[in-house]
Amino acid sequence: MPRVPRPAVVTAAALSLGLLATAPATGGEPAVSEPRVVAHFDFARGESPENIALEPDGSADLTLSTARQVVNVTRQGRTRILATLPAVADPKTPVVGRAVVLGIARAENGTLYVTYATGTARTGIWRIAPDGSAPRQIAALPPTGFPNGLALDERRGVLYAADSVLGTVWRVPCHGGAPTAWATGAALEPRNAPPAARVGVNGLRFHRDAVWVSNTNAGTLLRIRVRENGFAGPIETRATRLYAIDDFGFVERNKDTALAALTGGSEIALVRPDGAHRVVLTPKDGLSNPTSVAVRGRTAYIPSAAYFTRKDPNLLLARVYQRARD
């Protein structure tokens, strides 16, 4: 989520004193250790790493929001630009007022998809082909919205995008076409924040045949089952009191334990399937307003966008392991 005006930061700081729930660790649950920053970025150049998709070789593809770039970062920190989204002459993007590239998803053939919020007709989902050709818009989304988190269900051939302003999860064919408002409702809408900081549904992951989303203003983690006919099931609340949650990643493919980026407090929380959660990484570990998480094997990848701190946007790696039972 890109930087929002100062009142939102004040609100976030106040909320942090009372909203973050913690739970004691129980034997046998995952733990996180050995955090290390592998790449640093330049905030002044708009290089705020917002979202992440992993490559088969263990490198990470990141969206750099206000730079409008997608970059690849190796595990050793070497960075190269994959694509730059086209500039917009007069962006009228809600929340931030500038064109920003946000969510990212990767197909098995190497194609990347990103969400681009501009406040113009260029708002929508863009495809970045693995051959290095220029990015191409494959679906237009409402200019009044703020398309954010993105995930791909390759089996069904569809993309899901979270609209943080319109409180909607959009569904779009991965080959392009007209979007469908797949899920809506109060649980997805922004709330309880100044107008310029109203950010509802934000992070989005496709996991175990369900679309999981976060609501930043509400501090919730939600699950929406994909029915056999492709329609959305009811919206289930799976965790609450996750202060300023942004995006998240699941620790294992067959379980619902997640690592969630709590961007306002520069923390990562381990969220158990029963909704209990505890902080496992903090600013002391190198976090600077983390915005997303990806996990592969025993490694967690965590981009920090530095939207509020404005210091040291980076990519941090940490070890994920199974804690021994007491």
Score class of each variant (00 low, 15 high):
1 M>D: 06
5 P>W: 00
5 P>I: 02
6 R>N: 03
7 P>Q: 04
9 V>M: 05
10 V>R: 06
10 V>D: 13
13 A>L: 09
15 L>N: 07
16 S>P: 01
21 A>Q: 10
21 A>V: 11
22 T>I: 01
27 G>S: 08
29 E>A: 07
29 E>S: 05
34 E>L: 10
35 P>K: 00
37 V>S: 11
40 H>K: 06
40 H>R: 13
44 A>K: 05
44 A>M: 08
51 N>F: 07
51 N>E: 10
54 L>G: 07
59 S>T: 14
60 A>K: 12
63 T>R: 13
68 R>P: 12
74 T>F: 12
76 Q>L: 14
79 T>M: 13
80 R>V: 04
81 I>R: 15
83 A>K: 12
86 P>N: 14
89 A>V: 09
92 K>I: 08
94 P>K: 07
95 V>L: 15
100 V>S: 13
104 I>A: 13
107 A>V: 15
109 N>D: 15
109 N>Y: 14
111 T>I: 12
112 L>P: 13
113 Y>I: 15
113 Y>A: 11
117 A>R: 10
119 G>S: 03
131 D>I: 08
138 I>E: 09
139 A>Y: 12
139 A>E: 11
141 L>I: 15
146 F>H: 08
151 A>T: 15
156 R>N: 11
158 V>I: 11
159 L>Y: 13
159 L>H: 06
160 Y>C: 05
163 D>V: 08
168 T>I: 14
169 V>F: 04
172 V>C: 10
172 V>I: 15
177 G>T: 10
179 P>S: 09
182 W>E: 09
184 T>G: 12
185 G>R: 05
188 L>F: 07
189 E>A: 15
195 P>M: 09
197 A>Q: 09
198 R>A: 14
201 V>K: 02
204 L>R: 03
213 V>Q: 06
213 V>K: 07
215 N>P: 09
217 N>L: 10
218 A>G: 10
220 T>C: 09
220 T>H: 11
221 L>Q: 06
221 L>A: 06
222 L>N: 06
224 I>T: 04
225 R>D: 07
231 F>E: 06
231 F>W: 04
236 E>A: 01
238 R>I: 01
240 T>Y: 04
244 A>Y: 08
245 I>A: 09
246 D>L: 08
247 D>M: 00
248 F>D: 02
252 E>K: 07
252 E>M: 05
255 K>M: 05
258 A>E: 01
258 A>H: 00
260 A>H: 03
264 G>M: 02
270 L>A: 02
272 R>L: 01
274 D>M: 03
275 G>W: 00
279 V>H: 00
281 L>Y: 05
285 D>I: 05
289 N>K: 00
289 N>G: 01
291 T>Q: 08
292 S>D: 13
293 V>N: 02
296 R>M: 08
296 R>H: 14
299 T>I: 13
302 I>P: 03
303 P>A: 08
307 Y>R: 01
309 T>K: 05
313 P>G: 09
316 L>Y: 08
317 L>W: 11
318 A>V: 06
323 R>V: 09
325 R>D: 06
